[in-house]
């Protein structure tokens, strides 16, 4: 068993089976790196994750600890070469499983909790969780207006009116797509 600590004051710690916790690539790498240390006795502090979020993470990894590992696809990043196949890989269809649908904090007032969860999944490198969370957000955003998305994502319109007008012209062509 491995202990994970939240960033709260005082920290809240969770005890998680090693198998489950290894769904997080970040922690898995860390554990592998510290092979030889008695990690069962050393709580791992997670300075980016608060207690409610960590609780969700723990719930999710415990539920999914027996999932078959996802097929890794090497991702070419920032590859400027004109690789004929680089732009070809369509994103595989992500389907949110039933359990996860109920699990995700999807009520509107829980929006920030959802973002915190995705933040944590990103930081802990739990790709399947990140994928279904992002898929949920994308479905939510899909078809909505720019204003709605701004509000939903807590983003501020930081364009000057001039910039905005110019951008509007620049993207006008997309209307017909």
């Amino acid at each position: 068993m491995i202990q994970l600590c939240s960033n709260d004051d005082p920290p809240v710690s969770f005890t998680v089976p090693r198998k489950a916790v290894e769904l997080s690539k970040t922690i898995k790498t860390m554990l592998e790196d510290l092979e030889g240390f008695d990690m069962e006795q050393t709580p791992i502090p997670l300075p980016n994750v608060d207690a409610p979020t960590l609780e969700l993470i723990v719930k999710w990894v415990e539920q999914h600890q027996d999932d078959p590992p996802p097929v890794e696809k090497p991702r070419v990043e920032d590859d400027d070469s004109d690789d004929s196949d680089a732009d070809d890989d369509q994103e595989p269809e992500v389907v949110i499983p039933e359990w996860d649908k109920k699990f995700l904090p999807t009520d509107d007032e829980q929006k920030n909790q959802l973002f915190k969860l995705l933040n944590a999944a990103n930081y802990l490198e739990i790709k399947p969780l990140l994928d279904i969370g992002c898929k949920y957000v994308a479905d939510k955003i899909s078809g909505q207006t720019v204003e709605w998305v701004r509000d939903y994502l807590n983003m501020e319109n930081d364009y000057t009116p001039e910039e905005e007008a110019k951008l509007k012209e620049e993207i006008a062509w997309a209307e017909g797509l």
Partner: peptide
């Protein structure tokens, strides 16, 4: 990545 191209282009407007 999950959004249709048309919307991705329009989302440039967000911030």
């Amino acid at each position: 990545r999950f959004l249709p191209a048309r919307q991705v282009v329009q989302m440039r407007h967000v911030s």
